[in-house]
């Protein structure tokens, strides 16, 4: 296809992506170098006829607003935002590494820093939920493959629901059930005979609840893909493996699993990308006290009641994008190699 025709076809799409994906990244990068204006303070001396004089400091709202209108980005701060306590916190980490009482202490104190807290949960969620959901999906696919056809239809129908459900809605539905007055929460209290048991109270339980939600909503995708893959496993290979005396497990291990390996790579890639942006469940489960993610910290900065912290949100955003690139690196390198090999 000539370059000109290609361009004519793809231009609208490219323009949309450049304007609303590439440009915002630049905008985020610029924003992250600035920090909100300090409020303009005004010292006023008021003298009472009898009580003498007193000085008070007030916020000059007019001057503050004017300053904001002139420089909407705020003050230039360089890379300051990246290194402050709310982000990479190099000073604090240096301090922790210098003075500490053992590895546990270091971990606990680093975990107290907001950025590392969010990073820890995001990574834990990504790398725990993805394999567990794939495993569950694989087992469901194996099981559905051998149950009577009568069951297959309803199973596929209902399995799709947890996957396509709006993340916020799905997490709310589960959140109401695990509420101490909801069906699961109340039952757990009864089972453990502990009326104060609450899945929201401790960090460990909150993390576990979010992971359970993640597996619930992610497993169907693996299930559907693996189930489709199972239909294409060559019957001849299975049969010859059996003639050679392979047990049921060995057939799964040495015939089915290698056959599904390319699909597993695809599923893992998609789910790692999706889980890395974990955000809605934290809102839905009101879990921010015990678990925050990178996406949630950005949301929180933008939602700040007093002043929207664009600088801080921008810095976290860029660090998150860097994380995405690192996450995709193996894929990008592989694709690049294959491409270079081909041409």
């Amino acid at each position: 296809m000539p370059h000109k025709t290609f361009l004519a076809f793809i231009l609208p799409s490219i323009v949309a992506m450049l304007l609303f994906i590439a440009l915002p990244i630049v905008s985020v990068a610029v924003q992250s170098l600035f920090v909100e204006h300090q409020k303009v303070l005004l010292t006023v001396e008021t003298c009472q006829p009898l009580g003498g004089c007193s000085t008070e400091t007030r916020v000059d709202s007019e001057a503050s607003a004017k300053l904001r209108a002139e420089q909407p980005l705020g003050q230039f701060n360089g890379l300051g935002t990246y290194f402050n306590r709310a982000h990479l916190a190099f000073d604090e980490i240096g301090e922790i590494l210098r003075v500490n009482s053992g590895l546990g202490d270091v971990a606990a104190r680093i975990y107290d820093l907001p950025f590392y807290r969010a990073l820890a949960f995001t990574l834990a969620y990504t790398f725990i939920v993805t394999p567990l959901a794939m495993l569950l999906g694989f087992v469901i696919a194996l099981a559905v493959n051998i149950v009577p056809a009568l069951l297959k239809g309803p199973v596929i129908f209902f399995s799709l629901l947890p996957m396509i459900i709006t993340p916020l809605i799905g997490s709310l539905i589960l959140f109401w059930m695990i509420n101490s007055e909801g069906i699961i929460g109340a039952t757990l209290q009864a089972v453990f005979n502990d009326p104060t048991l609450s899945l929201k109270a401790s960090p460990v339980l909150t993390w576990a609840t979010l992971f359970v939600y993640g597996v619930w909503t992610n497993a169907p995708f693996s299930f559907v893909v693996f189930y489709a893959g199972l239909q294409t496993v060559p019957g001849d290979t299975l049969e010859s493996a059996m003639i050679d005396g392979a047990s049921r497990w060995e057939r799964i291990r040495y015939v089915v699993m290698p056959h599904l390996a390319p699909l597993a790579t695809f599923v893992a890639l998609v789910q790692l990308m999706d889980n890395f942006r974990v955000f809605e469940p934290i809102v839905g489960f009101s879990a921010q006290a015990n678990a925050t993610s990178l996406s949630f910290s950005i949301f929180n900065d933008l939602r700040n009641q007093n002043a929207q912290l664009y600088g801080s949100a921008g810095a976290t955003s860029l660090l998150t994008i860097a994380g995405v690139v690192v996450l995709l690196m193996p894929v990008l390198i592989r694709t690049w190699r294959e491409h270079a090999h081909k041409s």
Binding site: M17, F20, P24, I25, R277, S295, I298, I321, V324
Partner: peptide, 27 residues
């Protein structure tokens, strides 16, 4: 060749958390 690179760029864009872009839109 550039069609391939557009697809790779799209893959990276696809992976980006939406909220990171939102913070770029607001101002």
């Amino acid at each position: 060749r550039y069609a391939f690179w557009i697809l790779i760029a799209a893959l990276v864009f696809r992976a980006m958390p939406h909220i990171t872009l939102v913070s770029g839109y607001m101002l």
